[in-house]
Simulated assay, not measured.
Amino acid sequence: MPVVTNGRLIYVQHPTTHYEPGVHTKYVEEQLDTDTVPLNGGVLIKTLVVSADPYMRYRMRDPNIPHFSPAVVIGQPIDNFVIGTILRSEDPQFAAGDYVSAFSTFETYAVYPGPKELQHFLKYIVKIPKPENLPLSIFLGTCGLPGKTAYSAWKIFGEPKAKTSKTLFVSGAAGPLGTFVVEYAKITSPHLKVIACAGSQQKVDILKSVGADVAFNYKEADVNKVLAENGPIDIYWDNVAGSITDAALQNMNMFGTIIACGAISGASNPKDGAVTNFGLIFQKVITVHGFLYGFGDDAQKALGTFDADIMPLVASGKITSREHRYQGLQEAERALAEVHSGKNVGKSIVIVSHE
């Protein structure tokens, strides 16, 4: 396989509000000689699947704006978590034919590690097994970043608090992270009453199917009223911030716990993510735990038991998975736009190549 057509999704402009396909990114095709492209001690990956995640909007910014995640580099391909297979390797840890999960570029064929501009702290590549009855893309969702984030934060903060709690509220709950929290909380703490919200009836139906006791559409319901009728809330898993978090704070129990895992409502406009009821945190003696995947010794320790705890639950169907699949790297722009507007249902993935 010498010369091939290599599709690439290039980042060309910083959005100031919402991300727009064709404006902030551009899909291009170039010729690539897979036999001679320099690897510089790395590997050549044939990309099979790429992940479109809400947090990527945070990365679409001027690099001078500080943030926990590295900015996407103008003129370079978008990068994020991908699944692929090794075609060539100069790294003794990998061989041709290995399946890998990597933080790599949105290209049909990608050299890892890539350009120096992209070699930031999210350097990551690991071998993965090929599951017998599950798609490889499971390692981008339930068994990847969303699932591992949910698992580790729940083990550290949620499960201990759940021992003395009655009610859990999960916002933005219909994605792969949220549904994991709902299902795993029900497995580890079956006594909990789980309230969950999402932005469409289809997503509300998903929440009911994964075990939420109360599921509602925050775009149609009075969030404060629903929480008042079903609370008070002992544990709040926050994926959104903004007005929903304000309503949650109003309905938190004394000595409640908040696991702050996202603020996606303010990703395109920070004003939308503003929380005005901050004073209730001290008035109700609420503990707030901010959480980022993989940060801290406790998170690393929790991740060490993920495979043993979760893979059997996934295999048995007790932890479920839904995917919103886009076909072809050309569709990555639409996937990124829709995941930022909530139009996707389930984990957003783009099928780039077949094995």
Rank of each mutant, 00 (worst) to 15 (best):
M1E: 11
R8N: 15
H18Q: 02
G22R: 13
Y27M: 04
L32D: 03
T34G: 02
G42P: 10
R61I: 04
N64L: 08
I65Q: 14
H67P: 00
V72I: 09
I83R: 00
E90N: 13
F103K: 03
F103R: 10
F106V: 06
F106S: 11
Y112W: 15
P113E: 14
P115Y: 09
K116M: 04
K116L: 07
K123V: 13
V126I: 15
P131T: 09
S137G: 14
F139R: 04
C143M: 15
K148D: 02
K155W: 04
I156V: 01
F157N: 14
F157P: 08
E159G: 01
K161M: 06
T167M: 08
G175A: 12
G175S: 09
F180K: 13
F180A: 11
P190N: 13
H191W: 10
L192R: 11
I195D: 06
K203M: 02
I206V: 15
A212C: 03
F216W: 13
K219W: 05
K219S: 03
E220P: 01
V223F: 13
D234W: 10
V240Q: 05
C261R: 07
N277W: 00
Q283W: 12
F295N: 07
F306W: 11
V314I: 13
A315E: 15
S316E: 15
I319C: 07
L329N: 05
N344E: 02
V350Q: 03
